[in-house]
Write a protein that binds this DNA or RNA. Structure first.
Lengths: 137, 137
DNA sequence: CTGAATCCTACTTGATACTG
DNA sequence: CAGTATCAAGTAGGATTCAG
């Protein structure tokens, strides 16, 4: 359950080191997953790869706003955590295909609940925001 | 489904403005929800409030690593989006109680799937990381 | 007790140019 | 095609101090 979060993070409370997302390392399972989802591009890339495996350039075209630096970096992070697999074909010029692993598919499945929530309740959130902003001038 | 993400973000592709999480504003429902979850403290605070309503100081003690600046700020953001309600009791000195709204409870429910995934697969992720780091030394 | 205001640092991202 | 390297800018978070 969610309250387990307290226990997990409570561990670090006994040793009062600063809880940096990086500094925490693998100490908190929840952070190590969520920190990936919270970044700017991971979710979007996972969404594309869920549809079908993609090559680097395909992803780049599909997500025009991403810089190739961030595409490279985010893909490598996702690969490192085992969510994405990278296959190099020795063609000329070389081509590389990225696809979801089983773990990646499981992550995407869990993410969908959140995405569904977002679509279902976005209007409420926007409304709450304008009401809040109005009340606090 | 998840691939709707492409459509939503695709809107901004036609108008190639930079996709800042803040600059995007309310354009992408998914981002506006996920950006909150990805930050350092929201999830943890939501987890505590799910158990029971809490006063400011209670939360502060329950999450010793948070600075009161970030506790204040995160609570205000959560309140602004309608996830948390804030009730002031005119005692002396004043006390303030925070609790989850219905919307906040729905968000927490969606989050649980992700938390469950994190706990269930954390070991696999850690293993994947060390394997990746070993291969790419 | 519950914050607000200020300053400062570190991490994240973007822009650009270059390479096998 | 699929990256790497470098530099600049923005943003989040922490420490500290002050206030109703």
């Amino acid at each position: 359950m969610l309250q387990d979060l307290k226990i997990v993070d409570g561990v670090s409370s006994e040793a009062p080191t600063v809880l940096s997302l990086k500094g925490l390392g693998d100490a908190c399972p929840v952070r190590s997953v969520i920190s990936h989802i919270g970044d700017k591009w991971s979710t979007l890339i996972l969404a594309h790869l869920e549809e079908r495996p993609c090559r680097f350039g395909e992803l780049r075209r599909a997500i025009p706003d991403i810089s190739q630096r961030m595409l490279t970096q985010t893909l490598r992070d996702l690969q490192r955590d085992g969510y994405v697999s990278r296959e190099v074909f020795p063609t000329k010029p070389p081509s590389v295909e990225y696809s979801l692993t089983e773990l990646g598919q499981a992550l995407v499945a869990s993410l969908k609940h959140l995405v569904d929530f977002a679509f279902a309740n976005h209007a409420l959130v926007v409304e709450a925001r304008s009401r809040f902003d109005a009340e606090n001038m």
